[in-house]
């Protein structure tokens, strides 16, 4: 039976924890608003980009001259997984669900006898994947020092991926991130980025498009840029998802703390009551005995 003082201390500590989780929730909510706005602002560009790319690509027949970013290397022996996670924990299942998706994917590829290489973006994913795939992880991109995600970060990662591709280090690249659907729903997503997935359709024109400079050259610059955009977008979606996940995780933590405080206060009051009753009984029975 804990003493009254113990109970009081315990309640005080849970209250302190609750204050922290509450503060974290509010910070996450503020950050979420900004991250969500950034993610939504980036969407039009990515959409237009894929529409434009779809327009051009639908007119191109795959041949030996087609850029390899679009046509692929012809093989699918070596796979590169770009796993984007957060730099910090305390955001529910956010990091582990992305890592799990990547791990399942990697395990399946390994079973099929393929070679797997992994680039981790964000420390948390690295920490999780390192246990099983220490040999496969070739790089870690640290975004901890980055305050606001800019296009440069996406570009930096894209350049890394492109350099590896040019060097023939892999055939297929897949990007893992969490798509932000709403505050309570973030969907871990795997997206193939090399060779580029082209959405069919777009604007159908009867008129012939003029290209300046020629089609091939535009495609050659458009494809790497598309890669950058896809990665940049993934980073933004991830940032929004992270804050959303943290917000709901901290919300439930605050609620749990509240429940715990309620229960402990009840126990505290009961034992206080019991103590008083006991003392009264002692005094009364002492008086009776006289």
């Amino acid at each position: 039976m804990p003493s009254l003082k113990d109970l009081r201390n315990r309640i005080a500590s849970v209250k302190a924890t609750q204050k922290i989780t509450k503060a974290m929730q509010m910070v996450a909510a503020a950050k979420l608003r900004r991250a969500q706005m950034a993610a939504e602002a980036a969407r039009p560009y990515a959409q237009r980009m894929s529409a434009v790319l779809g327009n051009i690509a639908s007119g191109v027949t795959v041949g030996p001259d087609t850029p390899r970013l679009l046509a692929g290397t012809g093989g699918d022996q070596v796979h590169l997984l770009v796993v984007c996670t957060a730099e910090r924990g305390l955001c529910g299942a956010f990091n582990s669900s992305i890592a799990r998706l990547a791990r399942d994917h990697a395990n399946r590829l390994l079973r099929e006898g393929k070679t797997v290489k992994i680039i981790c973006v964000g420390k948390k994913g690295y920490d999780i994947l390192r246990r099983q795939f220490a040999a496969q992880i070739i790089d870690l991109v640290d975004l901890r020092s980055v305050r606001t995600l800019g296009f440069e970060q996406g570009d930096q990662i894209a350049q890394k991926v492109l350099a590896l591709f040019e060097a023939g280090e892999f055939d297929v690249a897949t990007l893992f991130y969490s798509r932000f659907q709403s505050v309570i729903a973030q969907i871990p997503t795997a997206q193939q980025i090399i060779p580029a997935q082209i959405e069919a359709g777009g604007v159908s024109t009867d008129a012939v498009y003029d290209y300046e400079p020629d089609e091939g050259e535009i495609l050659a610059t458009l494809l790497p840029r598309n890669l950058t955009i896809q990665i940049f977008r993934a980073l933004l979606e991830n940032a929004a998802s992270e804050q959303g996940a943290r917000m709901s995780a901290m919300d439930s933590a605050t609620r749990n703390a509240g429940e715990m405080i309620k229960k402990q206060t009840m126990t505290y009051n009961r034992s206080r009551q019991a103590m008083i009753t006991k003392e009264l009984i002692e005094i009364i029975s002492g008086a009776e005995a006289l």
Binding site: V52, N55, I56, T205, A207, V208, Y209, D210, Y211, E212, P213, E217, I218, T221
Partner: peptide
């Protein structure tokens, strides 16, 4: 545009330029 400045008005022919 890469090959010189150009003005786009309504009804321009479809084109794509860097």
């Amino acid at each position: 545009a890469v090959e010189g400045d150009m003005t786009v008005l309504a009804g321009h022919a479809p084109m794509m330029t860097a």
